[in-house]
């Protein structure tokens, strides 16, 4: 703290304020928020693991039941869920890797290289982020059909290989994390642009690149608008389309099965979150300050 020599009056004042601010009320609020954040996930499992009678009686059961395996099999009968899960992971991983790679290259160019039209091209990237995705969705759908990519995972992967968000994110990261002096020194020593990218940029941005990859993976996992449009073959579904199918098919009112499907589609993300949650929080907050 820079104002260590502040007058004693302000100091005591501030301490008093801090104490006042940390009333139990704050913890109670946070506790309620935490409870509300977790409850829908818990409820998903409650409904997925209890029989319909347990859920529709008043009051409903609030404890996990023993029925989950039964509902699990019912989901597998309705949709090829294992296959759907595999599709989702495959698309997510490919998109995440590709976005990190292309975004870091473009971000490097935008942050550290000077070339004609740089400013305009950066603005262009930001501008494309403002366009609602529905604007071109119909012709994009027609284009995908023309390529014969309907019912093909390529339809999900190729248009998402590199996005404006990723490029902009990487530009911000590289701009703020890598000192120009380092790059100048390297180029004076005769390092090529490619060499600089490989030996300086990549190692320095790995943590941020990991977070971008996670965000891309999560976004791809959770995307439904586009997959819903291009995928009709159950074997090509991603898990979100599978849930939607459970929700709209003959199973429309069988909440146990729909919830079991939702739980199966969400549990992997919750598990992943246990390991990477803190990194994601860091990523969100880092992006906020720069953005």
């Amino acid at each position: 703290m820079t104002t260590a020599v502040a007058s004693p009056i302000t100091k005591t004042k501030r301490i008093k304020k801090r104490r006042k601010g940390m009333s139990p009320f704050s913890y109670i609020t946070l506790g309620i928020v935490a409870f509300l954040s977790f409850f829908p996930f818990y409820w998903m499992f409650i409904v997925a693991s209890n029989s319909a009678e347990e859920i529709t009686k008043v009051p409903p059961s609030l404890k996990p039941g023993t029925n989950f395996m039964h509902e699990f099999h019912a989901v597998l009968e309705a949709v090829p869920f294992g296959r759907n899960l595999f599709n989702t992971v495959l698309v997510g991983v490919v998109v995440a890797l590709s976005q990190v790679f292309f975004s870091s290259l473009a971000g490097f160019a935008f942050a550290k290289l000077e070339f004609r039209g740089r400013k305009f091209l950066v603005l262009f990237v930001v501008g494309t982020m403002m366009l609602p995705s529905q604007l071109g969705i119909v012709p994009l759908f027609m284009l995908i059909n023309k390529f014969n990519w309907a019912d093909d995972l390529k339809a999900l992967i190729v248009p998402a290989l590199v996005t404006a968000f990723g490029v902009f994110w990487m530009r911000q990261v590289i701009d703020s994390q890598i000192p120009n002096e380092l790059l100048e020194a390297a180029s004076i020593d005769g390092a090529s642009v490619m060499r600089i990218y490989r030996s300086i940029i990549v190692p320095a941005i790995l943590p941020s690149a990991f977070v971008l990859g996670l965000f891309s993976f999560l976004a791809t996992w959770n995307d439904y608008l586009w997959p819903l449009l291009v995928l009709n073959d159950p074997n090509k579904y991603t898990v979100q389309v599978a849930i939607n199918q459970l929700n709209t098919q003959a199973y429309g009112i069988d909440y146990n099965i729909v919830m079991a499907g939702s739980f199966m589609a969400t549990a992997p993300l919750l598990l992943l979150f246990v390991f990477v949650g803190r990194r994601l929080v860091g990523g969100v907050m880092e992006g906020a300050v720069k953005g």
Binding site: L30, A34, M44, L218, Y224, Q240, I243, S262, T266, V281
Partner: peptide
Amino acid sequence: VLLVPNITSAIAIAVV
């Protein structure tokens, strides 16, 4: 904890 809800899809959560 605050970020937990954000990792799920709108579809899964709309079901619940």
